[in-house]
Amino acid sequence: MTAGLTTVVYPVKDLARAKAVFSALLETEPYADEPYYVGFKDAGQDVGLDPNGHARGMTGPVPYWHVTDIRGRLDALLAAGAELVEDAHDVGGGRQIASVKDADGNHVGLMQDA
């Protein structure tokens, strides 16, 4: 079961420039502003900018489905034929993320909060 799709992360090459673009789009400053991640909140949506995303195989924006059992959902997706891109791991504060590719190469992210 999911709690919905409320996070999308964009891989970016120029973090400062991407931050300026999304600040202009969302008309707000980021709530998280670190060299490894910049995050915005707008209308219940979390928008992240990841300067390491391309190196981790992200080819475009990745939607993250919020789940209560990341390992169970990841195993179910792999059993259904998805290809592992990024195994579940902690990204800080107990939050875990993982991602797979579907049969068409689309990235599907999973996120579980502590």
Rank of each mutant, 00 (worst) to 15 (best):
residue 69 D to V: 01
residue 104 D to R: 01
residue 34 E to Y: 10
residue 21 V to S: 02
residue 25 L to H: 11
residue 84 L to D: 08
residue 102 D to C: 05
residue 99 S to P: 01
residue 47 V to G: 02
residue 53 G to C: 06
residue 6 T to N: 13
residue 105 G to D: 12
residue 89 H to E: 10
residue 93 G to I: 13
residue 45 Q to I: 14
residue 44 G to C: 12
residue 59 T to S: 13
residue 75 D to A: 15
residue 27 E to R: 12
residue 100 V to G: 03
residue 35 P to M: 13
residue 84 L to G: 03
residue 9 V to H: 03
residue 58 M to H: 06
residue 83 E to P: 01
residue 43 A to R: 04
residue 70 I to T: 02
residue 49 L to N: 07
residue 25 L to P: 12
residue 66 H to L: 06
residue 65 W to D: 05
residue 91 V to G: 04
residue 15 L to R: 07
residue 64 Y to H: 04
residue 22 F to S: 04
residue 13 K to C: 09
residue 4 G to P: 06
residue 43 A to Q: 10
residue 78 L to A: 11
residue 12 V to Q: 00
residue 72 G to L: 00
residue 52 N to L: 14
residue 50 D to L: 10
residue 6 T to Y: 08
residue 74 L to F: 06
residue 90 D to F: 03
residue 11 P to E: 09
residue 14 D to W: 05
residue 95 R to T: 14
residue 32 A to I: 15
residue 62 V to I: 09
residue 53 G to L: 06
residue 17 R to P: 06
residue 80 A to M: 06
residue 61 P to C: 02
residue 23 S to R: 03
residue 86 E to D: 14
residue 29 E to I: 04
residue 86 E to T: 13
residue 34 E to C: 06
residue 86 E to V: 08
residue 46 D to R: 04
residue 102 D to A: 08
residue 12 V to W: 01
residue 85 V to T: 12
residue 59 T to K: 07
residue 103 A to Y: 06
residue 9 V to R: 02
residue 80 A to D: 14
residue 98 A to C: 06
residue 46 D to F: 12
residue 44 G to F: 09
residue 53 G to A: 09
residue 17 R to E: 15
residue 7 T to I: 14
residue 64 Y to P: 00
residue 24 A to T: 15
residue 21 V to M: 01
residue 69 D to E: 14
residue 9 V to W: 07
residue 93 G to H: 03
residue 98 A to M: 02
residue 105 G to N: 09
residue 103 A to H: 10
residue 39 G to Q: 06
residue 90 D to S: 07
residue 98 A to T: 05
residue 53 G to T: 07
residue 73 R to D: 15
residue 79 A to C: 07
residue 43 A to I: 09
residue 10 Y to K: 00
residue 87 D to E: 15
residue 79 A to F: 08
residue 35 P to H: 11
residue 38 V to K: 01
residue 15 L to W: 07
residue 35 P to R: 09
residue 97 I to M: 05
residue 6 T to W: 04
residue 99 S to L: 01
residue 48 G to P: 00
residue 8 V to E: 08
residue 5 L to A: 13
residue 99 S to F: 07
residue 29 E to K: 10
residue 73 R to N: 15
residue 91 V to L: 03
residue 106 N to Y: 13
residue 39 G to K: 00
residue 5 L to R: 01
residue 86 E to P: 01
residue 8 V to S: 07
residue 76 A to T: 10
residue 11 P to S: 07
residue 15 L to Q: 11
residue 25 L to Q: 11
residue 82 A to C: 13
residue 84 L to W: 08
residue 73 R to M: 14
residue 64 Y to G: 00
residue 28 T to D: 12
residue 10 Y to M: 07
residue 103 A to K: 05
residue 82 A to Y: 08
residue 24 A to Q: 14
residue 58 M to S: 04
residue 96 Q to F: 08
residue 62 V to M: 10
residue 61 P to E: 04
residue 2 T to Q: 10
residue 41 K to A: 12
